[in-house]
């Protein structure tokens, strides 16, 4: 069977999209650390649960950003097909 150059580029784009999602490791670790520290903070001071939850969610949402950059790159490679 004949594989044209364009097919090869699409295949490599799919592999590249998969590799771009390795970026998901970082936010996972970061969010886990934030959640763990929030849990211990609630254990130490249960009265401040509301403030701690808000701060934790804000921090996690910001930490998520780098993973989302990887996601955007993967989407562009998969669906926009720039090459």
């Amino acid at each position: 069977m004949g594989i044209s150059g364009q097919d090869l580029i699409y295949a490599c784009s799919a592999i590249g999209a998969g590799l771009a999602m390795i970026a998901g490791i970082g936010p996972g670790v970061g969010q886990g650390i934030a959640a763990g520290h929030a849990a211990s903070a609630v254990g130490r001071n249960p009265g401040a649960k509301g403030d701690i939850t808000t701060t934790m969610l804000l921090g996690q949402a910001v930490a998520e950003t780098t993973g989302l950059y990887g996601l955007v790159v993967a989407f562009i490679l998969m669906f926009v097909k720039p090459f």
């Binding site: 949402a61 910001v62 998520e64 950003t65 989302l68 950059y69 996601l71 955007v72 989407f75």
Partner: peptide
Amino acid sequence: LRLFANMLA
């Protein structure tokens, strides 16, 4: 990009 990528996902 943060808002866009979240909602696009």
